[in-house]
Simulated scan of single mutants.
Amino acid sequence: MVTLPLGTYFFTVRWVFPGRTTPAGALAALMANVVLISYVIMAFKDDQAEQAEEAEKQKKAL
């Protein structure tokens, strides 16, 4: 979660945009947003799976 944006920043400063921190920082910020969106999507999917499992338990209990 932390390593992708930081790794992207240092990789792009060193190899893609040598010495230019602004584009590297922008790309790192973009990667941070990608990580955040991925985390939210995974949380929603996990919650849906738990709700489906709970519904199955309630259905079997009846």
Rank of each mutant, 00 (worst) to 15 (best):
1 M>W: 09
5 P>F: 09
6 L>V: 05
7 G>L: 08
7 G>K: 06
8 T>F: 02
8 T>D: 03
9 Y>E: 01
9 Y>W: 03
10 F>G: 02
12 T>G: 00
14 R>Q: 14
14 R>F: 12
16 V>W: 09
17 F>R: 03
17 F>W: 14
18 P>G: 14
18 P>T: 10
18 P>H: 14
19 G>Y: 05
20 R>Y: 15
21 T>Y: 10
24 A>T: 03
27 L>E: 02
28 A>T: 06
28 A>P: 06
30 L>K: 01
30 L>H: 03
31 M>R: 10
31 M>N: 15
31 M>H: 14
32 A>T: 11
33 N>F: 11
34 V>E: 09
35 V>Y: 06
37 I>V: 15
37 I>G: 07
37 I>W: 14
37 I>H: 08
37 I>F: 14
38 S>M: 07
38 S>Y: 04
38 S>R: 04
39 Y>N: 12
39 Y>T: 12
40 V>D: 12
41 I>V: 14
41 I>E: 10
42 M>R: 12
43 A>G: 06
44 F>L: 12
47 D>M: 01
49 A>T: 13
50 E>G: 02
50 E>D: 14
51 Q>H: 10
52 A>H: 05
53 E>Y: 09
54 E>G: 00
54 E>M: 02
56 E>P: 00
56 E>C: 00
62 L>V: 10
62 L>Y: 12
62 L>E: 14
